[in-house]
Nucleic acid binder design. Structure first.
Lengths: 214, 214
DNA sequence: TTTTATTGATTGACGAGTCAATCAAAAGGG
DNA sequence: CCCTTTTGATTGACTCGTCAATCAATAAAA
């Protein structure tokens, strides 16, 4: 069995196992042994590849964030107008890969992790800032000065729906969350819409939206 | 020193110390010894009065929630109209006693605790439901059927601003958070305002939008 | 004397990280 | 193509520290 090139496979397995295990436990109270067992190896090997528990967690966090980032990027690529882009970003947050129970649980845990570990905090900040910038860029073209507050509000609401779902034992319901944030966006945009200057040029002040996927 | 009637004093000191210690650590990774030391007693005494770590945490959580509850109740008592009541509830969340760094940190930790301990979860649920009911009751008198979605949105946004402030190292800024949620309330209320009682008088966009969830 | 307060010391469990040893594939050298 | 050497993979066993919980003992009220 001892072949060459195991490192990436093992690391990937460990990252996946870490997220699953955090999801199962609902917290960071997860032992390296548990993670390693789920990933099908000894705890010593986990240490060998990652060096320590912290780095395992960090790698798992990086993975979650990168999956999330990819999701956002893909959704943005398919959007044409600024408004569509904002909607795409909002939707991305509640799309399946990011909105499964274990991942929601992991997000919540990462927030806690970010309170104590500087690297984790830095990582989370990068993504928060990126989200804010993206929202801001597109919102600026729709509403003027209010865009910063709007971006903050949207981001807060997204986080809020996440946390709220962390406590529901029922399977997460992306539709409600998405609809809620999109509705907020709608309100924000329609307030500042001048006669027809909502930017997307449809002149309809944000009706005729594609009603919620699925 | 050994006098009678120490129990309530000791318990109170422990609860306070627990919150402070959780705030300092930024997580639930806090030992009974640390808490006891901060409260000026031995860890054995902490165990003696509370029976175990879990019950100490639960008591701390109960305390935070009860302070919060009192705040809300007081604010509600001073409000006259339904709208004022909703605003009062919103404001309460960001009022000093609830919006200090340690308490914010504690809230976040309690969310995590609620994921694993059933009593903690139950406790948090009670307060979430109470908040939702309160909001719902007053919103119903302002907007009709949309009030449930609105209450959910407001609650989510409040939580979101909390979590957001948990990561800022700067002292929390209640004004921005309050303004953000109140602005959202504003938007929600003006949408459903009848013919032109909405005050913003734009009378244009943002009505008759796609119905929310489902 | 009984009850309450209080603690130092101890126990028992658990968990992160280390290490030496094993195993097998690859690499090299004749 | 065999033999040897190197190197990566892998683990069981062990160390060391920490921490929740317990207990027996002490001291001071009541």
């Amino acid at each position: 069995m001892p072949k060459v090139g195991m490192e990436p496979i093992r690391k990937e397995a460990l990252v996946r196992a870490t997220i699953e295990e955090i999801g199962r436990a609902g917290s960071l109270d997860v032992t390296v042994a548990q993670i390693a067992k789920r990933a099908g190896m000894s705890s010593a090997l986990a240490h060998h590849y990652f060096g320590g528990k912290d780095q395992i967690f960090l790698a798992a966090m990086r993975h979650v964030l990168s999956v999330y980032g990819a999701q956002v990027r893909a959704a943005l690529a398919a959007a044409d107008t600024p408004r569509q882009r904002v909607e795409a970003v909002i939707r991305s947050n509640f799309e399946p890969p990011n909105f499964r129970p274990e991942v929601i649980s992991a997000w919540l845990s990462f927030y806690v992790l970010a309170q104590t570990r500087t690297p984790a905090r830095r990582l989370l900040r990068v993504y928060q800032n990126r989200l804010h910038s993206t929202l801001l860029f597109d919102l600026r073209q729709l509403i003027g000065e209010r865009s910063d507050a709007a971006a903050t509000g949207i981001a807060a609401m997204i986080d809020g729906h996440y946390i709220r779902h962390a406590l529901h034992d029922a399977p997460p319901n992306p539709l409600e969350a998405t609809a809620s944030v999109l509705d907020y966006l709608d309100l924000v945009l329609s307030r500042d819409a001048t006669a027809d200057g909502d930017g997307d040029g449809n002149g309809l002040c944000g009706r005729d939206r594609v009603p919620l996927k699925q």
